[in-house]
Write a protein that binds this DNA or RNA. Structure first.
Lengths: 142, 142
DNA sequence: TATTGTTATACTCTATAACTATA
DNA sequence: TATAGTTATAGAGTATAACAATA
């Protein structure tokens, strides 16, 4: 009798793989990676933020976020402004180039992913996927 | 007015990140990575298979699967048996060690992921997540 | 001593390109 | 020429460990 993988583990793995395919395909479009775009988007929405705060929001280690921020800084998409109240901290903020890139990327990305999701899924199905995200987030934090 | 990321792109990215957290946490348990375990599980369920066929099932490039199979072979978890009918092909199959590992890993993995999913989600919610997988698979292939 | 952040290194997963061997 | 497979290289994403600077 064949060994059965636990269905729940298989479910998590398959979902991750499938989403990976979506995200990798997204990355074939010009522009920054989805992960970096997420940081730019967050800075735009929430304003300047420390590396630690960004890491916590994106649920990454501060060291990993430091690398991401460093890369974005090298590319001129973000800059740092020292916190006068605390010499250890700096505010990471979008540069004008970062804002421009975010805006133009958003437009290009819409050319396929949004179209694909909106073509393939109806509003109810998209809501279902969103609900699944909330459920799995709960599991990941458990 | 802040730039709004396209909600659908943000949805795909967030889901991917969340599932990544689940899978990485799974990997902190002893045993092979989730991706390799998937290959072992498939060989156990479907029997010996060529590298190409495995790659197609897992929706990876054959070159990537060749690397995975090579690693598994090095670890003694799978072996190759040449196809007498076609000198180019070989059947990849589980070794006794691979079967043992699959079985013992399944047991250990159940200690946290299955418990977490079953503790955090009820049957209806797990069904919802499964449905979301099917929808997103459609998008990734579109 | 705790917090913020960096540097160095390594691992997983997957991709592309260039290649060999067999059909 | 087409197919099965390998090797080499690279990149995204993230982790751990060790460290510096400031509070």
């Amino acid at each position: 009798m064949p060994i059965q993988e636990p269905p729940t583990a298989a479910l998590a793995h398959e979902l991750h793989k499938t989403l990976g395919r979506v995200v990798r395909r997204l990355r074939t479009e010009p522009g920054p990676s989805v992960g970096r775009l997420a940081v730019l988007g967050r800075l735009d929405r929430d304003g300047p933020s420390s590396v630690s705060a960004l890491a916590a929001c994106e649920r990454m280690r501060p060291q990993s976020m430091a690398q991401t921020v460093h890369d974005l800084e090298t590319e001129g998409l973000v800059s740092r402004r020292p916190d006068p109240a605390d010499g250890r901290r700096a505010f990471v903020e979008l540069t004008a180039a970062g804002v421009d890139l975010l805006q133009s990327t958003r437009t290009r990305r819409e050319t396929w992913l949004t179209e694909a999701l909106e073509r393939e899924l109806n509003a109810g199905e998209r809501a279902l996927v969103h609900e699944a995200l909330a459920l799995l987030s709960r599991v990941a934090d458990a």
